[in-house]
Amino acid sequence: MKLPIMPPVAPMLAKSVPTIPAGASYEPKWDGFRSIIFRDGDDVEFGSRNEKPMTRYFPELVAAVKAELPQRCVLDGEIVVATDAGLDFDALQQRIHPAVSRVTMLSEKTPASFIAFDLLSLGDEDYTGRPFAERRAALEAALAGVNSPIHLTPTTTDVAEAQRWFVEFEGAGLDGVIAKPLTGTYQQDKRTMFKIKHVRTADCVLAGFRWHKGSTEAAPLVGSLLLGLYEQGRLQHVGVVGAFTALRRAELVQELAPLMLADGEDHPWQEWASAEAHQGQRLPGSVSRWNATKDLSFVPLRPERVLEVKYEHMEGSRFRHLAHFVRWRDDRTPGSCTYEQLEQPLTFALHDIVPGLGSDQAGLG
């Protein structure tokens, strides 16, 4: 394979914003596996968000790429599994399996599709330095007449149309709208696009768990999962997930067992019992400020697994309330789970709400 853009490539990313911005190109936000397709004749590779190849898991798409795409190209897009009821992310996750026989079976039972939405190279030309409007026009020309399961995502520059998509497309399993600056270049691993989603979600690192208060030696139950996000290379405690059924709590005991630390293994939060360790770092094992007798000890896990959670809003650097489990994200790497993905509310001074409140209060009292 010899292309102007060679694998691995870290996809360009999006930052959450609360409303649809004006003056951009808008497209639906697909709920699947982000993937960059590299094709050089009969050589085809599917890159992933974590830059690891996914080619072997989607043989039906490899065949489709050879049949439908230009001989030499690099495309950014999303792998999805579509059903009559909408997108099926659970079925998509099942496609990631080590057994060739199962991959083959699932490729026939739950075939995937590829939704193209950006062009990185075509022939010998590198398009990453060109504005999105130009990349989009070239993508449309390159994929003119393309057949299923390869598709071109719709776009619009009409904000009202994008708002309609945001409302109506949710019923099909899409989870929002992406806005791309028309003059923006393709910047790997940079959050230069914008995403508007229906709920606030975050991909977090699973770093440990606490036992449920009803757990016994004979019938152990997981109480809550401890969540972390990376900040300047350090894994910070950001909150917990804990709303599980009793059956699910029992299942989690077995599911998390392979992640438990072996003797001598280190953990990012192993120093939690030291009061000094809490200076400048958010750790999960400090004494509760509401109940000094409450046991906040936890079972540390190797921080290797990622889960998506839904949350209401942030309080400082933590989730304000209990987060809610959405799904495992085995397509994400722990190191990609940073605070940058979170929606940052606009700063608003108290004195702009109530005149004098919060402004120059030092001498009052």
Rank of each mutant, 00 (worst) to 15 (best):
M1I: 02
P8K: 07
P11R: 09
L13S: 07
I20C: 06
A24P: 00
Y26K: 06
I36N: 05
G47M: 10
E51F: 01
P53A: 14
P59V: 13
L61R: 09
K66R: 15
D76S: 08
V80M: 07
Q93E: 10
R102Q: 14
P111N: 06
L119R: 02
A138K: 12
A142P: 11
V146Q: 03
L152M: 14
T155D: 07
V159N: 03
R164G: 05
G173Q: 05
D175S: 08
G176F: 13
V177K: 12
V177P: 02
A179H: 05
P181T: 13
L182E: 14
D189C: 01
K195V: 06
T201C: 07
C204G: 01
L206T: 02
L206I: 13
W211R: 08
H212W: 07
A218H: 04
A218N: 04
S224Q: 14
L227H: 08
L229A: 13
R234T: 13
L235M: 13
L247A: 14
A250H: 11
E265Q: 14
D266K: 11
E271V: 01
S274L: 14
N291A: 11
N291D: 15
K294H: 13
K294E: 15
S297P: 03
F298L: 03
V306P: 09
E315W: 02
G316V: 01
R320V: 01
R329Q: 01
D331T: 00
T333D: 15
Y339N: 03
A349M: 03
L350N: 08
L350P: 05
V354D: 02
G363Y: 00
L364F: 06
